[in-house]
């Protein structure tokens, strides 16, 4: 009968899929470090909606602090680089399913995220806070009243903000760019953002300046990788440490952020 044959084909396909999974698990026991060197190419997840860390230039190519750092990483590992742009929400899934080898993606280390992935020591320190136009009368999370605050879904700002103000005050957007658009167009009163985003925004919109309403917390950014891969973690830690002491990170800070590398960045 036709349909029993179809059923059999389906069962065979599933068995094949399971076998392939087993093969994948074997492959993953090899360190990403070795895999990347063997392959000769590293696939790095980078931001493209979060200037000055990552955005697109007039030709559509990614540019920014994290993009330069990703290229530096590939250069020091002596492999070719493939940059994969992504949104903040799918950073962890892309890492866990092996679509990227590493995330150089303005990734804030939090205990919650560290349940799923591993983080290196931070390579830059940022401050996250709530920013809005002068007319918005808020000075602390307690005085937020009815004001709406826009945030990129699944970002560090989102998780931090969720613990500080009632959920009714938070408007979540798919990414930074859209959250930013909401505040600039008046759909939301404030923007929970990284200090550097605000510097950029104010440079381009001098007539519509956003100012700090309250600080949420310091938010250092780390490189993110899959857990259970000590060789890879070790190499990435070495990379961060080496470029802290040789001045490369200082140079990137001057180039993109117009400030110095913080001397008190923690080391994990």
């Amino acid at each position: 009968m036709n349909w029993t044959r179809k059923l059999l084909a389906g069962v065979l396909a599933s068995v094949f899929a399971l076998a392939a999974t087993a093969g994948k698990i074997d492959a993953q026991e090899k360190s990403t470090l070795k895999k990347v060197i063997d392959r000769g190419t590293i696939i790095i997840g980078v931001p493209v909606d979060s200037p000055p860390f990552g955005s697109i230039d007039a030709e559509g190519n990614p540019v920014g602090f994290d993009i330069d750092l990703a290229r530096l990483l590939a250069e020091q590992l002596e492999v070719e680089v493939e940059l994969k742009p992504m949104t903040s929400v799918n950073r962890i899934p892309n890492l866990l399913t092996g679509k990227v080898d590493v995330q150089v993606n303005l990734f804030g280390a939090t205990p919650q995220r560290a349940r799923q992935i591993a983080f290196t020591s931070p390579y830059t320190g940022l401050i996250i806070g709530a920013y809005g136009p002068p007319g918005v009368d808020v000075m602390s999370p307690e005085s937020i009243a009815d004001y709406k605050i826009a945030v990129g879904r699944g970002t560090t700002m989102d998780t931090t903000l969720s613990q500080m103000v009632p959920d009714e005050n938070i408007v979540r957007f798919e990414d930074e760019a859209t959250a930013q658009a909401a505040v600039l167009s008046g759909q939301a009163d404030m923007w929970a953002a990284v200090n550097m985003h605000i510097v950029e925004s104010n440079k381009l919109n001098p007539d519509n300046p956003l100012e700090l309403k309250f600080v949420m917390r310091r938010a250092p950014a780390s490189i993110g990788l899959r857990q259970g891969d000590p060789d890879w973690l070790r190499w990435l830690e070495t990379f961060v440490y080496f470029n802290k002491i040789n001045g490369n990170l200082q140079m990137l800070h001057e180039k993109w952020l117009d400030e110095d590398l913080q001397s008190d960045l923690p080391t994990f």
């Binding site: 909606d49 979060s50 955005s55 559509g60 742009p85 990414d175 930074e176 760019a177 658009a181 925004s201």
Partner: peptide
């Protein structure tokens, strides 16, 4: 899933131009 179609490109251009 990281596909840059018209709307996503719009978001990226917004991020770059404010």
């Amino acid at each position: 899933v990281g596909f840059v179609d018209l709307l996503r490109m719009g978001q990226l251009v917004t991020a770059a131009t404010f």
